[in-house]
Amino acid sequence: MNIEQGAELAVVQYNDKNGKDCVTIKKFDSQGKPDVAPGLARQLVTDKKIIGIVGPPFSGESEAANPIFNDAGIPLITPSATRVSLSSHGWKVFHRAVANDGAQGPGAANYIKNVLKATKVFVADDQSAYGAGLADVVKSTLGSLVAGTDKTDADGKQTDFSATVNKIVQSGATAFFYGGYYQNAGLLRKQLTAANWKGTLVAGDGVDDPGYATAAGNDAAAGTIVTCPCSPASKAGGSFVGDYKTKWGVDAGTYSDVAYDAMNIFLKGIDGGNTTPDKMLSYINSVNYSGVANTYKFTSTGELDPSLIKVWAFKFGTDGKTAPDQEIPKS
């Protein structure tokens, strides 16, 4: 919804400027389901008027639908699918306008090192691909700052963390990175607070869930930092935030600004006379576009140029909700 409205806003503004209905937007609703997406994708590629796609928004459906787009040669820019492996399939049409999940590890480590300025850090994970992956990157980035490590059971499979809590307290760490999801993280935070540990818990976007505050209680949850390979839409540049609110009556949500930019990349391509999928693809591959959320330049695998990747820190407040804290400095 955020994404669709962001993209549509770009088209509406374009058409207002260039006379009615120069460009039309055609919507396909996959409901985010990997089993629905391929059917829609096949339908989409038969429409010869479509020269570019903003989406698909989710990683699971991307895995299912992108091969079809790739065979048809229709360029796509996803504003929000962040699974790392998406760029490793060799899809020549694939572009990602945000950082991938892999950017979170270095981001979290940099936050701990440069913002919290912690000198002793405890790192634990839940042995999942996501959690252990994040924790390993954090460990290697922090190096000698790591004061201790541990591994818990999978999310929701462990409730008593007294041994881990004891290790964290005894290690003297002032920051604790947890690679995992919100249930374990919430219980850990609650039990750490109960053991009178006053340091900061830092985690990836798997913890950015209201369930975290339910498990920990709002008081204990307050102050927890979660990273996101995204920027808050409210911080987007230009008149985007106001335009979005005027058009849709709601505040711009996560990734709506990126979708807006992605659509504008296509529109600018059309202005440049790239009106076939082939021409559009080679145009996007060499684009260097400054939008409201970021500047976009893609590598040969379709990822954002590393120098353009943004990772933001969000902080849990006493109301149990997250709010943007700051963009994490790169070093």
Binding site: G156, K157, D160, Q191
Partner: peptide
């Protein structure tokens, strides 16, 4: 009181 949350499968592991 000790753990601070309950879930439908809390009894299983315990």
């Amino acid at each position: 009181l000790k753990i601070g949350t309950v879930k439908f499968d809390a009894g299983f592991d315990l």
